[in-house]
Amino acid sequence: MVKKEKYILLDKYIDFLLENSDASSPMWNIERIRSGSKNKWNYIDACMISAYLELYEIKRDKKYLNFCNDFVSAFVNEDGSINTYNIEEYNIDNIRPGKNLFKLYELTGKEKYRKALDTVYSQLKTMPRTEEGNFWHKKIYPYQVWLDGLYMAQPFYMEYETKYNRMRFCIDSFSQFENVERIMKDTNTGLYYHGYDESRQSLWCDKKTGLSKNFWLRSIGWFILSLVDTALAIDESLYYEFRRLQEMLYNLANDLLKFQDDSGMFYQLVDRKDDKDNYLETSGSALISYAFLKAVRNKLLPKRFEDYGRKIFDGILERYLCVEGEELSLGGICLVAGLGGKENRDGSAEYYYSEPVVKNEAKGVAPLLMAYTEIIRLGMAYD
């Protein structure tokens, strides 16, 4: 199949997902479907909504905005309260859906979205922290910082502070990145470890450093995107902080290239390509593609990273996007991976390879669609 046909398939896939999903039953959320539970406020759906909001801004087709508005309105009430959202869970993932409220408020003018921004922000005001000052990943994971948590909270935090709180705590947001760079970055590879436990109590952490054992691709993908989105949200007056975020982004982007496969994609465990059970993984690769392309467009990374981002994107399409029967299928997606918890996830290589690899799941689909919006913006979709 030639490349142009892959893009035509992707366009059809985007509309197919939209036409067959709503807030109660999004067809992309396989993890929720498998659990048999009702849908709720969550970051997975939020990433899909972000992709559709981007498509609306590019194409100005009302079907995208109407879908996003209807989907999020199913959770957000007129007084700004949010159905199924429990602040006292102190789950950092639940901040991420709040990022879409900025754009929905801007596009619709609905005051309930402005009020809901305050609701989400109230979680950050009382969020438990490590001694270094970083938000815990979740209340059920005390004293732990997970790399993906930076993406879930910090772009929202920085944008809220900049727009609505007179920048009072912008430095607090920025400092959490500096802590992560100082503590969780490996100086040999330039990569970042998945997790850090300040208490050193978790079964998965090194008792001396508090760090987990491996470099999990999707967590690094979330993190590099957090650097992009937080840098874009920061006020221009914070020039030093902006340049430091840009420096972290540039350094990580360069170091990632050392581990890129010839296909353009990256492996589930980034630095262990020779492991027999390792595999080229879609979601993390797509996140890096999106981060590269978005950063180039916004002049955060040099122009050469545009080619790297495009190569990753095309590699995913060539390897994992296909037609099965009469339906489009996107494969190579790690369903879920974490540390500790009731599953006693030990952070070993064997653990990461044991998690299900699935098709058509939003943690892979959403990053691919977000990356595609950059491909469209750059005019590269059908060349």
Rank of each mutant, 00 (worst) to 15 (best):
A51Y: 12
A337S: 12
I234A: 00
S81K: 06
A74Q: 09
Y193R: 09
V358N: 13
E159N: 11
G264I: 01
Y151L: 12
T108Q: 05
L321W: 02
D61R: 08
E89Q: 10
M152I: 06
T187N: 12
W28Q: 07
I312V: 07
L368Y: 10
G340P: 02
L18I: 14
Y352W: 02
C47G: 12
E57S: 04
P142M: 00
C322S: 14
V357T: 11
K12T: 14
E281Y: 08
Y7L: 04
T282V: 11
C68E: 01
N344D: 11
W222G: 09
S289K: 00
M380G: 02
L252H: 00
V323I: 15
E54S: 14
D307G: 10
Q201L: 13
V323L: 15
C170K: 09
R297D: 13
I234Y: 00
P128Q: 07
L378K: 08
W136M: 07
D314L: 11
Y239M: 14
G340D: 04
G190T: 06
E111P: 13
I171W: 13
Y113N: 09
K276E: 12
A381L: 02
K3G: 09
A371I: 05
K4Y: 06
Y279Q: 07
S202W: 07
S37D: 14
R166Q: 14
